[in-house]
């Protein structure tokens, strides 16, 4: 399917999702344009991760539409959904590396399972490229248990990139990392956007990450997108829910910086 380059690659409309009595998403709307990084900010448990899990078809919404690369995700049959998933990368909060495989095998696995007739040399080159991109070419034969938190995140992102996705979904990419490693991950997210021209949704509650990586920021509060715009636009408000979020990230309001 050929896509109009001006059309959003992700279109979320009226998305609702509840777990039992607890309504997590209440009519979420969001568009993501090609090669755009959109950061979804929100408190822990606000439904940010649920949102991207719905986008990739891991969860089903109660209502609403999610159109990804022109496909309504929840109307797709398994084969079509898998074809779509090959075009969308997902970087997990805890990296979700396969701990029975070394770094090389972790990267080769999705490639070999999804690409038939790939020559050994090509597999090697693509693994090497992905590792170079995240600056961990030397870690090829290490096991996930031997890697630091930041390295695991990088390998997780490399595994996401191995299938050369058009969209990358990052779930809390800087959670649990020190400020220096977080800054490196933020830089990596920007590099991925520039090199692969991929669109991204970055789920985070880290304002530094939001400011560094986001072309636009969407504030998810009480199950709805309260504010969408540039970082400064989103926080230029007296709404105590937004201001409070800012305050407790230990930063000064934008106008004071």
């Amino acid at each position: 399917m050929t896509l109009d380059p001006t059309e959003p690659v992700i279109r979320i409309h009226g998305l609702t999702k509840a777990f039992g009595e607890r309504e997590v998403l209440r009519g979420v709307d969001l568009d993501v344009r090609p090669a755009e990084n959109v950061v979804v900010l929100g408190r822990s448990g606000s439904g940010k991760s649920v949102l991207i899990k719905i986008l990739i078809g891991l969860l089903k919404p109660d209502q609403g539409e999610t159109i990804v690369l022109g496909h309504n995700v929840h109307r797709l049959r398994t084969r079509a959904l898998n074809a779509l998933r090959r075009r969308v990368g997902f970087s997990f909060q805890n990296s979700a590396l396969y701990d029975s495989m070394n770094v090389k095998q972790n990267l080769e696995f999705p490639l070999l399972m999804n690409t038939k007739g790939l020559q050994a040399g090509e597999v090697r080159d693509r693994v090497h490229d992905a590792l170079e991109q995240v600056g961990l070419a030397h870690a090829l034969l290490q096991m996930p248990s031997e890697l630091s938190g930041g390295q695991r995140k990088r390998i997780g992102i490399a595994r996401t990139l191995i299938l050369r996705p058009e969209i990358v979904l990052y779930d809390e990419p800087t959670a649990g990392l020190d400020p220096v490693t977080s800054a490196e991950i933020n830089e990596l997210i920007n590099q991925v956007q520039h090199k692969y021209h991929s669109a991204s949704i970055i789920i985070t509650h880290d304002l530094t990450c939001a400011r560094t990586t986001g072309d636009r920021v969407a504030m998810l509060i009480d199950g709805t997108m309260l504010r969408i715009g540039s970082f400064d636009e989103v926080f230029a408000t007296d709404d105590p829910r937004v201001a409070g979020f800012y305050k407790y990230n230990f930063m000064q309001p934008p106008e004071q910086q």
């Binding site: 891991l58 998933r85 090959r86 909060q93 805890n94 979700a96 590396l97 701990d99 999705p110």
Partner: peptide, 18 residues
């Protein structure tokens, strides 16, 4: 069980692996 709780099974799913 460990793969399930560390999201490794979901990681396979999102990589289009059954």
């Amino acid at each position: 069980g460990s793969m399930k709780v560390t999201e490794q099974i979901e990681a396979m799913e999102v990589s289009a692996i059954n």
